[in-house]
Design a protein around this nucleic acid. Structure first.
Length: 286
DNA sequence: CGTGGCCCCTGTGGGC
DNA sequence: TGCCCACAGGGGCCAC
């Protein structure tokens, strides 16, 4: 039945870097697989991957999973008694549900065992991610999620405007700042800015009203499109042809520096903005 | 206090 | 072919 379901799995050439669509895809899978399931035990193989308060009910051992929540790139397992665990995947983290007898992948740092003989595994080679425990959802909100900006998937024009108006940093830096907007990473920042025809280096507060509306809309559509494609990368989401068609094939600029812009054939440029590789079209984006 | 830059870490890939 | 090293990125921290 549930054999080695990898909740996130991108083509090898494109290292999986979890942003909002990937985290939401993971959330939906976990909801389907684990809602209502009791966790009989939890074990931190690498203790330093579990951060924050580790007093009972640490890691939800003995709890049933009531629901799964997400804000930006943050994921949370909500226990039946209200305690919760939040998980940040960092840049190489993933979650896997597998039969208990199967071999643990390398870099498995936390393992939860379920009442029905499965395991939920947190795997993160680079350990930029982590797991936090919270006594309640309210505590999770006040400790961590209150620091995050509005969720990018439903970002309104007004929310984007208030996030950028006083910021003198480049618009791309602001999009990557999780306190301003939650859920956007390097890939979708470049894609959304290209789609909105705005240069990543533009000073955020200089964007005009029309650009706030366009950028907010493009952020939503880029993430929504990726979320739809993300569903097809799940191993249990079989199409007759197999599991190709991940979002990577739909990227227009990210990873394509030096190639022709799909819109105008001008050569895409690259630089470092916000200490991240940035790709943009000098013709389409202003 | 806002911003830019460095660093954490390891798998991958490009170059020789 | 095989080895080595630069590079990739989310976000915390620090110096300006």
């Amino acid at each position: 039945m549930h054999t080695n379901l990898h909740l996130s799995d991108a083509p090898r050439k494109d290292p999986f870097v979890p942003e909002l669509p990937e985290v939401e895809t993971t959330r939906r899978s976990l909801e389907r697989l684990l809602s209502g399931t009791r966790l009989t035990s939890a074990r931190a193989i690498r203790a330093d991957v579990v951060r924050g308060d580790r007093t009972p009910p640490a890691l939800l051992a003995g709890q049933a999973i009531a629901s799964l929540a997400r804000h930006g790139k943050q994921l949370a397992l909500i226990g039946a008694d209200g305690a919760c665990v939040s998980i940040h995947l960092g840049m190489s983290g993933r979650l896997e549900v597998a039969e208990s007898g199967t071999r643990r992948p390398p870099h498995t740092h936390v393992v939860w065992t379920t009442e029905d003989g499965r395991q939920l595994r947190f795997i993160d080679p680079r350990r930029f991610g982590g797991v936090w425990t919270h006594r309640s959802l309210a505590e999770l909100q006040s400790d961590r999620w209150s620091r995050l900006g509005p969720d990018a998937a439903s970002l309104t024009t007004a929310q984007l405007r208030s996030a950028v108006t006083i910021r003198s940093a480049p618009i791309k830096s602001v999009l990557l700042d999780q306190r301003a907007v939650a859920g956007i990473g390097n890939i979708y920042a470049d894609e959304a800015l290209h789609s909105a025809r705005i240069r990543p280096q533009r000073t955020a507060k200089d964007l005009v009203n029309q650009e706030h509306a366009t950028l907010a809309r493009k952020i939503r559509s880029v993430l929504t499109t990726a979320l739809r494609a993300g569903g097809t990368t799940l191993r249990d989401y079989r199409t007759p042809e197999g599991t190709t068609g991940a979002y990577s094939a739909q990227r227009l600029v990210y990873g394509r520096a030096g190639q022709a812009c799909p819109g105008c054939r001008q050569i895409l440029l690259t630089d470092q903005t916000a200490a991240r590789t940035t790709v943009w079209c000098p013709n389409c984006q202003h």
